[in-house]
Design a protein around this nucleic acid. Sequence first.
DNA 1: CGCGAAATTGACTATATTCAAAGCTAGTGG
DNA 2: CCACTAGCTTTGAATATAGTCAATTTCGCG
Lengths: 247, 247
Amino acid sequence: MQSTDRVAFEIDEADVPAGCQACGARRFGICSALKAAELTHFSTVTRRRKIAQGETIYFEDDEVANYANIVAGAVKLTKLLSDGRQQIVGLQFAPEFIGKPFTEKVPVSIEAATDVEVCVFPKTELEKMLRQQPDFEHRLLEQTLVQLDDARTWMVTLGRKTAQEKVASFLLLLADHIGKPSADNPAHSEFMLPLKRADIADFLGLTLETVSRQMTKLRKMGAIDIRKNLEVTVHGTEQLVAISGGE
Amino acid sequence: MQSTDRVAFEIDEADVPAGCQACGARRFGICSALKAAELTHFSTVTRRRKIAQGETIYFEDDEVANYANIVAGAVKLTKLLSDGRQQIVGLQFAPEFIGKPFTEKVPVSIEAATDVEVCVFPKTELEKMLRQQPDFEHRLLEQTLVQLDDARTWMVTLGRKTAQEKVASFLLLLADHIGKPSADNPAHSEFMLPLKRADIADFLGLTLETVSRQMTKLRKMGAIDIRKNLEVTVHGTEQLVAISGGE
DNA sequence: CGCGAAATTGACTATATTCAAAGCTAGTGG
DNA sequence: CCACTAGCTTTGAATATAGTCAATTTCGCG
């Protein structure tokens, strides 16, 4: 006969819904505020959805009835000016939360930057969880504070950096979020660009031509390598940090 | 003898600490989540402080032991690059909350843009209130979401607007927060600039000369009037909205 | 292989910056 | 009360950086 401890542990683990076990949000996202039993209940009202690159998930000022966690991929948050100029105001990667609680409308458009998989749940359900679980709201506040800090950090990049520094900052941001140590040299970092040049330009407040020129310059300086327009290798982040004008 | 209702009402009102009665944070800030009795307790651990224009309240990455509500005046939140370039990432007016909960360090420098009066309270005390009062945390989350939205809206201005549009956007922001209808024409708006040209430049991602030139241009276009370098009159906001490139 | 989309490169231009000088404004002291 | 100063603002001329428009190349995919 097994010890109660052991049994309890196994039951607990078994209680974690299958779909949640491999999910980043379970461990690092808002779901980490939930206990297995609560998660089980929660998982009955969520559903997985795959979204193709380029699809818009919410339009700016849409009224929304759902929220979601990103399970895989990256989404871009954009804002438009009436004449069509566009600014990407944030990139979000797994396992971050999508949506703005307690308001009718989302103040940004949300679009799949890569193929994306999300875990969707109804607005009402989230708000119920928030009322029942103070921890859950706490977690949400923490994630919001991180996003606020990220936004403000990016404001410095937008307002005060040169084109070259902006591009270097962008590459460092990606290295940080989706970079993997390269096979041959662990000090290097490799990743696929989740955005095309026009989107990078919209994120950096530049034109796509300027982005392209600066990428070329960084390549010629030996700071990075780009293959097939989207496979990037960073040759040591220190050099890139120096070029980026720092934090 | 008075009715119990009447008595209860008077006691309740009388319970609101004297210092809180005229405070904006009491009605619109985070303190509005508190009932009179809780407020009374809270007010025993707060203290008023006056801060002169130009004084720094927190330095970037300082560890802080206090939070505060702005009672009067305006503060600027700034971030620095290592070589000294500066970006103002936010302006806050009464009755907003200052400080970043649950973290050791503030990620921005906070400086009094005008003479400021704040209501200060210890970090530990706020965090205790947050645990005891879910409403309080909820309120804080809502304020943080508003700040996040403000930051993202400003990112569009920084990344995608021209100098002229930036200056117009800035004036509209002020008209919105501290503008008063002018005496002679209610469609006009008047206010004192809380920032000097160099600060406006740091807020808009421009140089102070460019800010000055654009102000002059707006004056010559008849959109605004400036007296003594800091008294501004907006001649109808529609024109300024049109110039600002919109939301 | 060939087509369409995306990226690069080039030549020219526009916008905002830089550097420099002069003009205001408010506060101080004779 | 006026002159003087210090700090800020305005204005000007020259320059640099990024933007625009256009041509060419590369890449992904049928």
